[in-house]
Design a protein around this nucleic acid. Structure first.
Lengths: 252, 252
DNA sequence: TACCCTAATATTGTCAACAATCGGACGACA
DNA sequence: TGTCGTCCGATTGTTGACAATATTAGGGTA
């Protein structure tokens, strides 16, 4: 259970912080479906707060690319498209490739050991429950998360962990991403750790890039399978839990 | 004269848009020096607006990493450090490398011709006024700008052109970046265009990455020269035009 | 019946006042 | 004299009301 961006427990200090964290979770996990219009008076009423901090929170969501805003019209939750997901993978290929390179240069031996342990846990879990599910959803992100952190590049870390990873999580919640590739991906993770342990930046970057590129191609194939030709903007598949519009959320 | 992010003329629709654009320019160009505290009442008074849209604008500046905010304390203009600049170069190496790769795959023949023309203009200008200055400041950014746009990856474009390039501009305004490397860089630009025209993505990415890496190393050397040992956080060098604190800015 | 123009409605953008929190100055005490 | 505690001032966070804009429903006309 990785804790992206300290969203757990430690709730932000200010009202806008808390409502931002909560809205982000609701959007990422699909509680507020893609394409939904964000009504300021309505949400303010539900959360029992004023429109001021709510607008602040919406602004931050926009900065994360989780909602889109048009002046004098309002904000909508982004609608996920196949095209955008593929663009996201290209970004990750470039950025996480660099992260792996830097990690190979700077990661401490101690952290490398920790990373190895993490992989062992993943293996056990995968063997145990055969539920490649866990591995490919949270476990995979956790692995990547650690390598990014190990890059030591604050800007890279912020970009990947604060923005892009919430988007990736959102895509995983909305599209299934069942991944017939889990075992292969797991082995690739092993190779990446080896390259890092060998202090071979070139190799670490190369393998990480191929790893992410393979994921992208896999996703591309899945899309072509489901929608042989057109289907240029497939919206969310799962309706994701019937939004609790009745019954206000617990107090902040 | 590239027009990063449509900041010219076409002023935003809403008040917050306009004050955001104006503040960003003031910060990037050093009119508001690094490290300055952003006082909401004061600025609101100067611009003749309320604190609401101003706070909105400050929030967007924070999303661009141009100001840093602490709850209940306030916002300050980011203080530029050598370390952060080097991190920025690493990001650019990864991202613009990918942009060059994509451009080689997708750039239209027409746009490639345009790019060649641009280089010719740069050459003439450089020869004419011998003022490598222009080339290395705005011209260089313009060249990179076009390749990024040609990548066709909306997310990549947004990231580089909306956020990172304003930061690069800010560093160029604050630190000199005189660049003894202008001529070499110009030739490298030529090689990049060739690789794109050859539809050789691997090569285009490789050269772009080396190009940016060379810039980074050059900057690193400059820093080591000026501050042989410590000097871990060199603040702005130029005081940049005596900030017009007296005399309110023209109306929005 | 289809299209366009007008007006009502609801939403967003903006403003000014209130409450909560932080930083610094002053003074008391060891 | 140095350190801690307290108070005050100022700034930020939040609120509710006002103004401006976009959407939608309705009626009139070709």
């Amino acid at each position: 259970m990785p804790d992206f961006n300290d969203q757990l427990g430690q709730q932000g200090v200010t009202l806008a912080d808390r409502v931002f964290a909560r809205l982000r979770q609701a959007i990422v996990e699909g509680e507020i479906p893609s394409g939904t219009k964000i009504s300021e008076p309505e949400l303010a009423g539900e959360y029992g707060i004023s429109r001021g901090p709510l607008r602040d929170a919406i602004g931050r969501l926009e900065a994360c690319h989780l909602v889109e805003r048009r002046p004098n019209v309002g904000a909508r939750v982004v609608s996920l498209t196949q095209e955008d997901l593929l663009e996201l993978y290209l970004l990750r290929e470039a950025l996480e490739g660099m992260a792996a390179r830097l990690a190979a240069e700077r990661m401490s031996g101690r952290d490398i050991d920790e990373l190895r342990k993490l992989l062992k846990q993943h293996q056990e879990r995968a063997e145990l429950q055969e539920g490649i599910a866990y591995f490919q959803t949270e476990g995979d992100l956790d692995f990547h998360y650690r390598i990014i952190k190990a890059s030591g590049n604050a800007r890279l870390i912020k970009l990947l962990c604060d923005d892009l990873y919430h988007l990736m999580r959102m895509y995983r919640f909305q599209f299934g991403m069942a991944s017939s590739r889990a075992l292969i991906a797991f082995r690739e993770h092993g190779h990446i750790v080896e390259a890092i342990a060998d202090r071979d930046p070139e190799m670490a970057e190369l393998i990480m890039r191929r790893h992410i590129r393979s994921s992208r191609i896999n996703v591309e194939l899945l899309f072509d399978e489901k929608a042989p030709k057109g289907a240029k903007a497939t919206p969310a598949i799962r309706s994701a839990g019937a939004g609790n519009s009745a019954g206000a959320p617990p107090p902040l």
